[in-house]
Simulated assay, not measured.
Amino acid sequence: MDLSIVIPLLNEADSIPELQSWINRVMQTTDLSYEVIYIDDGSTDSSWSIISTLSRKREQNNSPNPIKGIKFQANYGKSQALHAGFKMTQGNVVITMDADLQDSPDEIPELYKMITVGNHDLVSGWKKKRYDSVISKNLPSKLFNWAARKTSGVQLNDFNCGLKAYKSAVVKNIDVHGEMHRYIPVLSKNAGFTDITEKEVIHQARKYGTTKFGYERFINGFLDLITIAFISKYGKRPMHLFGTLGVITFMIGFITAGYVGVSKLYRMATDLPYILVTDNPWFFIALTTMVLGTLFFIAGFLGELILRNGNQGDRYKIAEEI
């Protein structure tokens, strides 16, 4: 199969029929074999019913049925939805897009060409001209993207754009979890897929419903950025970080304790006035830093044990597939 289109969604019943018709029109202008995979992330409206109807309609017409679906038992988040969709894909090229009609299916042929002819590993959409609120979305997005570029080294203008294209090998070799969907380009780079570029894409104003993301996504995004920065450098060797911190901290405490002890012995030997060790604040500083150093060591050992023995299962439950 040439192409898989993965569409995570939450309560987008009004948009799905129009989106699928748009995709059909675009794909009719190509000779590509394709599938469309909808992942219903715990919708409470009729989204799943509409997806099921669209799939059955193709089957009843005895025509190739490219419409597939996954229904989650609850709302697990966009990253988990993408993870499930990526596992199901069969196409040589995978394109992700949102279901709210803000991503244009007209971009699909060119994105596909950039992967197959341009031989890029990943092409990320760049919504240069946006129709979102300047204060609530545009300015926070610019700050977020700047921080992501500086931290990750991946030079993209729009990390959070849902419209992206990948080689199949990319989506099969990355683990998208938590809220890491924002950082798929960084995950791809860490997995060895370094040919990452971007394409300026059309951004549509939302036609139906309201956004499913609030202000907390920016706070979560920056926290995830710190996480992925750590994982990128020390994810496979946590002891290198925590062990180094442990050695430095413990040595500071040990040297300070030595200073306190030698200072008291010197004063005793020279009949100078001295105070009890427990009355010296440097004693407690030394004790605290040595304890912290030991805790850093323990954290490093635990990280190594978890890394070697951890076995993560799926972080979501699927209620139904079509």
Results as ranks from 00 to 15, higher is better:
residue 28 Q to R: 08
residue 76 Y to I: 01
residue 83 H to D: 05
residue 79 S to V: 00
residue 91 G to K: 12
residue 261 G to Q: 11
residue 244 T to H: 03
residue 95 I to E: 06
residue 68 K to H: 14
residue 322 I to K: 04
residue 312 Q to Y: 02
residue 236 K to E: 12
residue 114 M to P: 02
residue 143 L to R: 10
residue 147 A to G: 10
residue 223 L to M: 10
residue 271 D to L: 08
residue 247 V to W: 07
residue 306 I to P: 03
residue 267 R to T: 00
residue 298 I to L: 14
residue 209 G to T: 13
residue 277 V to L: 00
residue 115 I to R: 00
residue 165 A to G: 12
residue 90 Q to N: 15
residue 140 P to A: 06
residue 225 L to D: 07
residue 319 A to Y: 03
residue 167 K to N: 07
residue 120 H to P: 00
residue 112 Y to M: 10
residue 305 L to Q: 12
residue 138 N to K: 09
residue 316 Y to A: 03
residue 66 P to S: 12
residue 60 Q to I: 09
residue 102 Q to W: 06
residue 54 L to I: 13
residue 44 T to A: 09
residue 283 F to E: 00
residue 265 L to R: 15
residue 63 S to D: 10
residue 45 D to R: 09
residue 5 I to S: 03
residue 130 R to M: 14
residue 41 D to Y: 00
residue 56 R to E: 10
residue 220 N to L: 12
residue 194 T to M: 07
residue 206 R to V: 01
residue 132 D to G: 05
residue 136 S to I: 03
residue 189 K to R: 13
residue 115 I to T: 02
residue 170 V to R: 05
residue 311 N to A: 15
residue 253 G to F: 12
residue 75 N to D: 00
residue 39 I to V: 14
residue 46 S to Y: 07
residue 137 K to D: 10
residue 230 F to N: 09
residue 96 T to Q: 12
residue 220 N to D: 12
residue 5 I to D: 01
residue 253 G to Q: 13
residue 259 Y to M: 08
residue 131 Y to I: 04
residue 243 G to V: 03
residue 308 R to N: 11
residue 245 L to N: 01
residue 264 K to L: 02
residue 139 L to T: 03
residue 145 N to P: 07
residue 14 D to R: 11
residue 216 E to D: 13
residue 194 T to S: 10
residue 2 D to R: 09
residue 80 Q to K: 04
residue 164 K to I: 07
residue 90 Q to K: 15
residue 297 F to G: 12
residue 122 L to F: 07
residue 216 E to H: 13
residue 211 T to I: 08
residue 47 S to R: 05
residue 281 P to W: 00
residue 38 Y to T: 06
residue 109 P to Y: 13
residue 280 N to I: 04
residue 172 K to V: 00
residue 1 M to E: 07
residue 1 M to C: 06
residue 220 N to T: 09
residue 11 N to V: 02
residue 129 K to N: 13
residue 317 K to F: 06
residue 199 K to L: 11
residue 287 L to W: 14
residue 168 S to A: 12
residue 155 Q to G: 07
residue 272 L to W: 10
residue 167 K to L: 12
residue 14 D to G: 05
residue 103 D to Q: 07
residue 59 E to G: 03
residue 44 T to H: 01
residue 239 M to V: 01
residue 322 I to C: 05
residue 99 A to W: 01
residue 137 K to Y: 14
residue 312 Q to F: 01
residue 184 I to K: 14
residue 317 K to G: 00
residue 36 V to E: 01
residue 269 A to I: 04
residue 147 A to W: 02
residue 139 L to D: 04
residue 309 N to R: 11
residue 142 K to Q: 15
residue 143 L to S: 11
residue 42 G to N: 00
residue 101 L to H: 08
residue 131 Y to L: 06
residue 105 P to N: 04
residue 72 F to G: 00
residue 279 D to I: 00
residue 245 L to Q: 08
residue 35 E to W: 01
residue 25 R to K: 15
residue 109 P to D: 13
residue 108 I to N: 03
residue 275 I to W: 00
residue 234 Y to W: 15
residue 85 G to P: 06
residue 167 K to E: 14
residue 230 F to Y: 15
residue 199 K to G: 09
residue 211 T to W: 10
residue 214 G to Q: 06
residue 16 I to D: 08
residue 240 H to M: 04
residue 271 D to G: 02
residue 36 V to T: 08
residue 153 G to L: 05
residue 68 K to T: 11
residue 70 I to M: 08
residue 151 T to H: 08
residue 310 G to A: 08
residue 259 Y to D: 07
residue 266 Y to I: 02
